[in-house]
Design a protein around this nucleic acid. Structure first.
Length: 197
DNA sequence: CAATAGATCATCT
DNA sequence: GATGATCTATTGC
């Protein structure tokens, strides 16, 4: 099937809805393609774990902007994380992409993730997938409805959605805002046992 | 297998 | 000046 970028209305919804809906969709960057298998929702002022919880700053401006854009930031001085901006313009909310199943351009991904042999480990974490896909801070603010970096509809929607707490945060850690394709070997292992086994 | 250390810097106080 | 939506390597049981 063809790969047509999701339209802006897809993203103009609550972050939780978008986080669930993004599972199974295809992340495209140039020739590279991968299926989204794990996401986390970050809310607005009420969510202490969210960057947007402290309101508008130069960095968080994108999160308050129009939906369907990328929010990419540097974490721990080393890795970059890709988020998708959700909610109507003016409202804060975004979705962290946490893990991908590589589909196309896998040789390039291997090159960018030197030392990794197993395909399951090329993009099974937020810092790993940006490396594998060649996504950097220069993509911050990029429009995901057009351009080299987009998200397209997937063909397969026949999977169970697992839910758990979010991973790696210290503030507001108890909400069930992490979603993943149940049973997928491409989901990041690390911490966070499912709430619903 | 689980726990921990260290790398490294943009952002905000 | 402290902190952090991480990852890898290493140590310990």
């Amino acid at each position: 099937m063809t790969c047509r970028a999701l339209e802006r209305s897809f993203y103009a919804r609550p972050a939780i809805e978008v986080a669930r809906a993004l599972l199974g969709k295809i992340l495209v960057h140039g020739p590279a393609r991968a299926r989204i298998v794990e996401t986390e929702a970050y809310l607005g002022l009420t969510d202490a774990a969210a960057h947007a919880s402290r309101g508008r700053t130069p960095r968080t401006e994108v999160i308050f902007g129009p939906p369907g854009h990328a929010y990419v930031y540097l974490i721990y001085g080393m890795y970059e994380c890709l988020n998708v901006v959700a909610e109507p313009e003016g409202q804060a909310g975004c979705v962290l992409i946490r893990a991908l199943e590589p589909l196309k351009g896998i040789e390039s991904m291997r090159r960018r993730r030197s030392g990794i042999d197993r395909i399951e480990q090329l993009a099974n974490g937020p810092g790993k997938l940006t490396l594998a896909m060649g996504i950097t801070r220069k993509h911050n603010g990029a429009d995901l409805t057009r351009g080299p970096l987009t998200v397209c509809g997937g063909c397969e929607n026949d999977f169970e959605i697992g839910v758990s707490r979010r991973i790696g945060i210290t503030k507001n850690p108890d909400l069930p805002l992490r979603f993943f394709v149940a049973g997928s070997p491409f989901v990041s292992r690390s911490v966070g046992r499912p709430l619903v086994p």
